Amino acid sequence: MSEVDAQIARANEALERARERRSSLSRRAGRRREGTIVRRVGAIVLADGLIIAIALAIGMVTPLGTLGAMIVMGLLIATTLVIAFARTDAAPTPERLAETPLKALPLQTEQWLEGQRLALPVPARTLVDSIGVKLETLSPQLARLDEREPAAAEVRKLVAEQLPELVRSYQQVPEPLRRTERNGATPDAQLVEGLKVIDQEIATMTAQLAQGDLDLLATRGRYLQIRYQGDEGV
């Protein structure tokens, strides 16, 4: 196989991973929507049933009449509309990530990171896909990890603090300066390098959690360190 063929093959593999990633996100988003619909329908049935039960109980004591029937119908319609169109949970933000329960943190971070995707340079988007896959793998392990464990604090620091801070710092750089080199690197390159470090750290944390090496994870002492460079760097 020639070098050109090898590069094409690698590009195709990257595209396939990205497609699988987006497909996975779409499936999970669909399941969340279905779950929301089921919960809303259940709440509507329960609330409307309660209104009808109260109306029947009142009707056994005194006739409701036309006005009473119209009031009951109005209550049923209003209740149904309020529950059906009630605002769902707000989109994840870095501030909300800091307060998210550990077991829900990977999914919330994944959703937030996907929302930043189009604002990042193309090389960084591949890493967004990779981090998303690793977060999905990490999720069931965090569900079994006690929030009070020092290892939990290390995971939270990386995923809920350092990752959002890296992306947010990059986005604060004016767009024309993101490809301007300073001190040997552009903000685009610094972002990509930082995401690589985080990607590797999440993989390492996942492996250590899988092996039960909580003490090792808690004492890693390896943090993402990005030196800010004013308006001209991340």
Rank of each mutant, 00 (worst) to 15 (best):
A18I: 03
A153K: 04
P106E: 02
A29G: 11
L113C: 07
G49F: 10
R96P: 00
Q111W: 08
V72Y: 09
E34D: 14
Q111L: 14
T109A: 11
E13K: 03
L102A: 06
T137L: 08
K134T: 09
G65R: 05
P101G: 07
R39F: 12
A84G: 10
T93L: 14
M73Q: 12
P63A: 15
S26T: 13
E161L: 11
L102Q: 02
A119S: 15
A124T: 00
G132V: 03
Q116R: 15
P101K: 02
A47E: 01
R117W: 11
E110A: 14
L76C: 05
A43N: 06
E154V: 06
A153P: 04
A14G: 15
V82F: 00
I44N: 01
I58G: 04
E13T: 06
L50H: 06
P140L: 01
L46Q: 05
L97M: 11
R27Q: 15
R144F: 05
P101H: 15
P94Y: 08
L120G: 00
A119F: 08
M60Q: 09
L81C: 03
L76Y: 02
M70T: 14
A90N: 11
L138P: 02
S26M: 13
M73N: 05
R28G: 08
I83Q: 05
A91S: 13
E161F: 12
Q116T: 04
V122K: 13
V72G: 02
R33W: 12
R19W: 13
S139T: 08
G35Y: 03
L145A: 03
F85D: 01
E99T: 12
T100G: 10
Q108F: 02
A119E: 14
T36D: 15
P123M: 13
A90F: 12
G30L: 05
R40Q: 14
P101S: 09
T88Y: 11
E13M: 12
A119M: 08
I52K: 12
M73K: 06
A86I: 05
V159D: 01
I54N: 04
P123G: 11
L138F: 02
L158S: 02
S130I: 01
G74C: 01
L138R: 01
M70Q: 06
E13N: 04
L145N: 01
E16A: 09
G30T: 11
D146L: 02
V45T: 15
L50Y: 04
A14P: 04
A151Y: 00
S139F: 05
Q141G: 12
E161P: 01
A160D: 03
A104W: 09
G59I: 07
A78H: 10
R21G: 08
A14W: 11
G132R: 00
L75I: 03
I37N: 07
K134D: 12
V38R: 13
E95P: 06
P150T: 03
F85C: 12
P92A: 10
T109S: 10
R22A: 14
L56F: 15
L81F: 03
T80H: 02
T80V: 04
Q108D: 07
E154S: 09
P92E: 13
A90E: 15
R19E: 15
M60E: 10
E16V: 11
A90W: 04
R117T: 10
K157A: 15
R27A: 15
W112E: 00
R28H: 10
A160Y: 00
L138Y: 05
A104P: 08
L127M: 14
A29M: 08
R27D: 13
G132W: 01
M60V: 06
S26Y: 08
A29T: 10
T100M: 09
P140H: 08
L81D: 02
R87V: 09
I44T: 05
